[in-house]
Design a protein around this nucleic acid. Structure first.
Length: 820
DNA sequence: GTTACACCTATTTTT
DNA sequence: TAGGTGTAAC
């Protein structure tokens, strides 16, 4: 839902409200009673249980606005935490919309950026400097990889991946190497090696003046616990803490919130540790902890595998006695049919508080089910249906296709390309994970944080300078001997005892870094201009020879790399425009904490393809959930995990509740995976949807009876009446109730014909010329007449009306067609 | 330092 | 099956 109709109230007036004014009136406009309560309730702790599409962002932003307008809080006393930058940005925008300038000074940010802000200020308390680097998972994987090798840990079954995920899990539980060692079974050699690795990893991070993602949270908690007087500064400052998506918090995040909302001065005497100043706050007068508002929906918890602990929300009332709970069940997004299906599915999860979404917009369309013979058949259905919706006036950008695993996107893509359907894959390869972008950032990090050896190691031979492992180790040893950083060792290239060519290369790199440093962090101490980052980056890329090496390359990919780097420089310029005061560190922080998931919506004019996980928080007029099969959703691997199948059900629930008006559930009877074709069974979740809500265009039974491959699950439940269950098996009904048979089903009903119909090889029709009126034959669709041809060159599209398959758009260059 | 081949492993991933 | 990674040989 949206609050676009809310009038803008600009809160220029800083003085108290005029007597008798009702500052909340417009904020409550259009809200239902529960939403009003969530906005206006005042107390120490409030839990808003917000079902999907129940307007929680609206409630949260209005609650903040109401605190500000009522003069109950200064902006600086508000801390609102989300999980994504996108959510934070949206929330900030909407609060600004409501209260204007008086929102300035609020902290509306992600867990991670809030912690970075705190850590940059306080890092000196525990052996870091404020210019610390942030390691993303790729960086920490690289470091762990090196350590695993050094410790020869793979011999104990400790792969880099396993080690990384175990360390991450432990950090999310606030365990460090020492505390873990105490509880671990140290007679197990693998455990001993792991503890060693964990400790070594942590020491390396400290040495590099770096935090990994998990550290950002965990170290902030440790900081607060070790230095209560530091914690009190923030406890006094933030009087209102609000947390979005609370069901996704892990233990460390939970602890962070807990620390922040404790009454100030409540800690025992400060630790007599680490030479910091002892500041005793002589204020025994009972101060209250900040008021805490959390919003969440345990039915949408889908990140348990990453450490999210559903108990944080389900036991909120225990953690915060006297907490008020508000339940938002009215849904403003979907039709009742969609909601009823969602309710029915999720109600199969035991151990959950009952919650039923409802709407007053009416039943809406039935949910459409479809069973394809193969994943390509399924994809073709999706493509056809998308085209039909488009002709019916639905914009491509209002349609989305979801799948459980990324690999499923391929079949969809193949068909979409052939159908000339504009699509965009969300959350695919990430810009900031590309090698050249990581290189560029490493150059910047080398300037910003000379202690970061990882960054130095990354760039020292990129572009190739003839510096290999041997030289790197020489430098590393020299640095250790001289007790200087790796970076500083470069300045003494002549003392390293390496060949003249290599020595010159090192000296050159050193000079380039120094020059860039002078631009971005002037030694004169004066402030660098905002454009310094972009300039410095350009200088680094040019003078290091990075650009030249790419330009000289004949690899076609390197051209794209240059474009990506140009884009990176553009990002730096953009940053300078938006943050005139922004420093190099600010830029690196932003880049480290921003992911491309944050620009999800820029898919204008295309259909969005994404995993079910990525779909959370989004909504579309028409939603296709594909691959609704056993072993896919629920995924087979989840079966063995405690709570796995239930989390899968929530995932399916999340998918269903993204749809506003139309929902399609599809599956394929066969799926090519790992080189072989497997026969799929319909997902158990399909059977949890009441039959009258779901209309099968082609049910599993239809496909089954014609394909001849009996599958046990299909007959587990017989249809009763109109479109119930899977129905149709036994050959009674060949097609769905009102389905016009498609041409390819006419040709033959046998499975092999359809399984993996689309070969991997790409067909090329060359310059096949087509004009309106031409007759063509298509391998799948049969004969048809060309209505029109649009597009240019390789992207020419034929609009064809097939005799029996109906209208289609085809990419002429690659469609399996011949002119008649 | 680069290339080629063999090998391994295939959920989800807000930061 | 396919893609990515690691090692060995040139």
């Amino acid at each position: 839902m949206t609050d676009a109709s809310t009038p803008i109230i600009v809160g220029r007036d800083i003085g108290p409200q005029a007597p008798g004014a009702r500052p909340d009136d417009d904020l409550l406009e259009g809200l239902n009673p529960q939403q009003r309560e969530a906005v206006t309730y005042r107390g120490q702790a409030l839990l808003i249980v917000a079902g999907a599409g129940s307007g929680k962002t609206s409630v949260l932003t209005r609650r903040i606005a109401s605190l500000l307008r009522g003069r109950e809080a200064w902006p600086s006393q508000i801390l609102a935490i989300t999980f994504t930058n996108k959510a934070a940005g949206e929330m900030r925008e909407r609060v600004e919309h409501l209260v204007g300038d008086s929102s300035r000074g609020m902290w509306i940010s992600t867990f991670h950026s809030a912690c970075v802000r705190i850590l940059r200020r306080e890092a000196e308390h525990f052996g870091f400097t404020k210019s610390f680097t942030i390691y993303d998972s790729g960086d920490s994987r690289a470091l762990i990889k090196r350590l695993v090798k050094e410790h020869e840990a793979d011999a104990f079954g400790l792969t880099p991946a396993a080690t990384q995920s175990k360390i991450s899990r432990l950090k999310n539980e606030l365990a460090d190497a020492e505390s873990y060692a105490r509880s671990a079974n140290m007679s197990d050699p693998a455990e001993r090696v792991f503890v060693e690795l964990f400790g070594a990893y942590q020491r390396e991070l400290q040495k590099a003046n770096a935090f990994d993602f998990d550290d950002l949270i965990a170290q902030t908690v440790f900081l607060f616990r070790a230095f209560p007087q530091v914690a009190d500064v923030y406890r006094r400052r933030f009087r209102h803490v609000l947390v979005d998506e609370y069901q996704d918090t892990n233990h460390a995040q939970y602890a962070l919130i807990h620390e922040l909302t404790r009454p100030p001065g409540s800690d025992a005497a400060p630790l007599a540790a680490s030479g910091g100043m002892m500041i005793f706050e002589p204020e025994p007068a009972a101060e209250e902890g900040a008021s805490l508002t959390v919003v969440g929906d345990s039915d949408q918890s889908i990140y348990a595998f990453r450490g999210a602990d559903i108990r944080n929300i389900s036991e909120f009332e225990k953690d915060y006695p006297g907490a008020k709970v508000v339940l938002l069940e009215q849904n403003y997004r979907s039709t009742q049919n969609i909601l009823s299906a969602a309710n029915a599915v999720i109600s199969h999860n035991f151990d959950r508080k009952d919650k039923k979404l409802w709407t007053d917009v009416g039943a809406g369309e039935q949910i459409i089910g479809f069973t394809g013979y193969s994943q390509h058949d399924e994809a073709q259905f999706v493509a056809d249906e998308i085209e039909a919706l488009r002709r019916g006036g639905v914009d491509y950008s209002q349609m989305a296709v979801f799948y459980r695993t990324n690999s499923q996107s391929r079949a969809l893509e193949e068909i979409f390309i052939r159908s000339a359907l504009p699509y965009k894959i969300m959350g695919g390869t990430k810009f900031y994970e590309r090698a050249e972008i990581k290189d560029a950032l490493a150059y910047l990090v080398a300037v910003a944080n000379p202690a970061d050896e990882m960054a130095m190691r990354r760039i020292i031979n990129r572009p190739r300078r003839g510096i290999g492992d041997v030289t790197i180790e020489t430098i590393s040893r020299y640095a250790a001997d001289q007790q200087i950083t790796f970076r500083d060792a470069l300045a003494n290239s002549s003392a390293l005892g390496v060949g003249p060519k290599i020595q010159a290369a090192i000296a050159h790199l050193d000079a380039v870094l120094a020059e860039a440093s002078e631009i971005m962090l002037p030694s004169s101490g004066e402030l660098a201009p905002p454009t310094a980052v972009a300039e410095g980056l350009t200088l680094l890329l040019n003078k290091s020879g990075y650009y030249d090496a790419l330009r000289a390359s004949k690899d076609a990919q390197d051209e794209a790399r240059i474009e990506n780097l140009d884009e990176m420089v553009a990002v730096a310029r953009e940053f300078a425009r938006n943050n005139p005061e922004g420093t190099l560190l600010d830029f690196l922080t932003e880049v480290a904490l921003v992911s491309d998931a944050d620009d999800l919506e820029d898919a204008s004019g295309s259909v969005s393809l994404m995993t079910l996980h990525t779909a959370k928080g989004l909504e579309y007029d028409a939603v296709f959930v594909t691959g609704v099969e056993e072993d896919l959703i629920p995924h087979r691997i989840s079966a063995g995990e405690p709570g796995g199948p239930q989390e899968e059900r929530r995932l399916f629930y999340v998918g269903i509740t993204r749809a506003r008006k139309r929902l399609y559930l599809s599956l394929a009877m066969t799926r090519a995976q790992f080189g072989e074709v497997t026969v799929a069974m319909p997902s158990r979740f399909l059977q949890e949807i009441p039959g009258e809500l779901l209309h099968w265009r082609q049910s599993p039974g239809d496909v089954n009876s014609r394909g001849g491959t009996q599958s046990r699950a299909l007959n587990a439940r017989r249809g009763s009446g109109s479109g119930s269950g899977f129905g149709g098996s036994g050959g009674g009904r060949r097609y769905g109730d009102d389905l016009v048979p498609l041409a390819r089903r006419e040709q033959s009903g046998n499975l092999e014909r359809f399984a993996n119909k689309i070969p991997a090889k790409v067909r090329d029709n060359g310059d096949l010329e087509l004009a309106p009126g031409d007759r063509i034959r298509h391998d799948d669709f049969g004969e048809g007449r060309v209505d029109a041809v649009t597009g240019e060159g390789a992207k020419r599209v034929a609009h064809v009306r097939f005799d029996s398959a109906g209208p289609k758009k085809l990419l002429i260059k690659i469609a399996p067609i011949t002119k008649l």
